[in-house]
Structures are given as C-alpha cells and as structure tokens.
Simulated assay, not measured.
Amino acid sequence: MAGRFAPRPTRTTVRGGEVAVPAEVPRQVTAPARVRRWVPEGPLDLGLVLGPLRRGPGDPTFRAARDGSVWRATRTPAGPGTLRVHASGGEVRGEAWGPGAEWLLDGLPDLLGAADEPDAFVPRHRVVALARHHRPGLRLTRTGLVLESLIPSVLEQKVTTYEAYRAWRRLVRGFGEPAPGPAGTGEQPMWVMPAPRTWALIPSWEWHRAGVDDKRASTVLRAVRVAARLEQAVGMPPAEARARLQVVPGIGPWTSAEVVQRSHGAADEVTTGDLHLPGIVGWALAGDRHADDAEMLRLLEPYAGQRHRAARLILLSGNTPARRAPKMPKVDIGLL
C-alpha cells in the first residue's frame, strides 16, 4: 500500500476536538520596490516626524525597524501602498510597493515636513526653548490623507488610549488587507486599513467585540459615507478643512484638530477639549495644573501661527505635573 497515495497534510488539533487541515500557502513573489531619494534641508528625525501617525505600539499599519527605518502601510487615492523610509548621511531613501507606490513617493517630502517651516518658530519660554534645542529634527508631517487619521481619532474619543489602540488593531487586522510588498508577509505582517465601503459593511457585533460603542461606530459610518468629500478637505486651508469635518455629526473640535495636524501639517491647529493637554501646557508655562482650554489658549497666544508646534514641544519636554488621580479604568465592552 505504501506509495499508492500522496502524503496527507499535517493536522493540527484545536480546542473542542475539531481538526483543522492547513491549506497550502502559495509562495508570494514580491515585486521590486520603487525608489526615491530626497535630501532634506536641515536635520530630520524620522521618529519625531512620523511618530504621530503611529496608533500604539502594536499598530498594524506602522512599524519602526531596528535599522532605524520606518514602515507605513496606508490607503492612498491610487490604492493601497507600503512605504519604507530610511535616513542616512543626510539623505532619505524611500521605497514603496503596491498600487499607491508612486503616490507615496510623490508625497515623500511633504510627509517628512518639507512644507513645514520650523525656522519660523520663536520660543518664548525656557521649557519650549530647551525642548526645541534638544530636538532639532522635529518637523510637522503632512500626509495629504484625511480618513486614515479621522477613523482612529474617532476611536480615541472619550476612552483610554489602550481601548482605542486595541479597537484599531482588531478592526484593521480583521477587515483590512495585507500590506503590499515584503511588509505584508512574515510572522507579524502589516495591514492596510479597510476601504470606506468595507468600513460601512462591518457588522454591529464586530464593532462591539472591538470595544467600540454605538456612538463612535455611528460616527465612523457617517464619515465613510462621505469619504470622498472629506478627502477633498486636504486641498483646503486647515480652518476650512476642520469646518467641513465638523459637519459630520460626532466630529467635533478635538477630532478635527487631531486630523488636520496630520493631514495638513497644521502648525497652528491646537487641540482643545483634551482631558490632559490644558493642564500640561498650563503647568509648563505657568505652573497651573488646573488650566482649562481658555487658559491654555491664552498661554499659547505668543505662539499664534505656531500653537500646535508649541504644544508638541511642551509634550516632548517631559515637563508634566505629577499624577494625582488614578488612571481611567480599562473597560472592554466586548466582554459585556
């Protein structure tokens, strides 16, 4: 009997006594990357510039590699794409894969702050001046994309970062698609977030399992129905872009600011309505840990035109008041 039949595939026993037979995985051939080289004017710190695009340490759309490169998987107007950025010797090398590769490479300088004007910033407080001195490579990124920042910002409304990051990971991995190129394979593949149509078709119970309440889920669903109109906001001034975003119920000043800071590289769009930021700014600039939004904006008046950059430098300074209250409890509504 030996040799009459082909070898049976390996079986893996799973809980419940069922037997799963793994399907043969076809070998994937990765197309060559498209490459662009760019020389920035002045110092550039990739971690500082691209860090705001990362939604937690396990973000499936973002990876910081040990060799100093940064990987980013996103959905562009031309389709999904993966970008690897590495800086060495004063030069930046960008490699991109997928239908969105050319779009990503065309926007590489803006992504790394070429449209930003850090030299226009004049520190007026010692804390801010020291933070700027220690981080000369800080530039404000401009992604040229709205939805990729809007959806995770909505998920972060009124919850802990742990809950928001968990929801983002689960939804992207569950309904997105593998990143083009080598990043989409291996033990920890990267993922491109779902297309607007896919977001709209996510069942209600999957939002619940991801820990997203009906209010935030409904806001995302309303936004993806007008995704094309929202993406057009990248061609508007930041204030007008925020006004368009806030037409969608559930998107307020906090969320719109968080979006245009990334999509537009908006140096003056400071976040209001945040639980912690007013107290941090108040403490750093005036020793007032109880500052509210109005007081924060008053303290940032000397930085008109650059208020977001000033707030970012204050956050990077580490000069924050000691915690006096316990952290917000972690609540997983998917288990309720």
Rank of each mutant, 00 (worst) to 15 (best):
V128I: 14
V128K: 02
L130R: 14
H133R: 13
H133I: 01
H134V: 12
G137F: 07
L140N: 08
T141W: 02
R142Y: 07
T143S: 15
V146I: 15
V146A: 09
P152Q: 09
V154F: 02
V154M: 08
E156G: 13
E156W: 00
E156P: 00
K158N: 14
Y162G: 08
A164E: 05
Y165G: 11
W168I: 08
L171N: 07
V172R: 07
R173C: 12
F175H: 15
G176A: 08
G176M: 06
G176L: 07
P178K: 08
P180C: 11
G181F: 10
P182N: 07
G184P: 06
G186V: 06
E187V: 12
E187Q: 12
P189N: 09
M190D: 09
W191C: 05
W191G: 03
M193I: 06
P194N: 05
P194T: 05
A195D: 14
A195C: 00
W199N: 06
I202A: 05
S204N: 04
S204D: 15
H208V: 11
H208L: 14
H208R: 15
R209P: 01
A210W: 01
G211P: 02
V212E: 04
K215H: 11
A217E: 04
A217L: 01
A217P: 01
A217I: 00
T219D: 02
